[in-house]
Amino acid sequence: MADNYVEILLVEDNPNDVELALHALKRNNLANHIHVVRDGAEALDFIFCTGAYAHRNLANSPKVILLDLKLPKVDGLEVLRQVKGDPRTQAIPVVVLTSSREELDIVESYQLGVNSYIVKPVDFEQFTEAVRQLGLYWVLLNQPPSL
C-alpha cells in the first residue's frame, strides 16, 4: 500500500476499541485509508518516518491522527507533545480519544494544542462531529492531499 494513501492514523492499544473504531469507520466508508498502530513508540515511528517506517516519506503525513491516551511504551500525551512540538508535524489535526471526563481534564491541563476530543466508544455521531469541528470534510471526501 502506498503510504500516501494513509488518511487516518489510529493509535490505539485496546483491540476491542480498534475493532469498534474500525467498524464505525467502515460503516461510514472511511476505512479505506486507515492505518492502525498499537503503541506510542510505533505511532512516533510512523509519524516521523523512523524505525520500521523509515521508508515512509514525512511529506505524506496522515490527514488526521486519532490518538488514545493510555498507550504502552510512549503514552498518548508524549506523542501529542512531539507532534505539536515539531514544525513538520504540528499542522496535523489530532483527535484525542478519551475514555472519560477524567482523562479530558488531564489533556486540558497539558494544553498541548489538541484539536478535538472523542469520548469512547467511537460512534459515528461523535466522529463526524469531531471531523466537522476540524473542518476536514476533505478527509471524508477522500480528496488528494493538498498540503
Binding site: N14, L69, E102
Partner: peptide
C-alpha cells in the same frame, strides 16, 4: 487510581456496549 478506574474500568464496558450495539 481514579485515572486508572476511568480508563481501565470503562474499557470492558465499552466493548460490551459497543459490540451489543453492533
Amino acid at each position: 487510581f481514579s485515572y486508572s478506574v476511568s480508563h481501565d474500568l470503562r474499557a470492558p464496558l465499552r466493548a460490551m456496549s459497543g459490540f451489543s450495539r453492533i
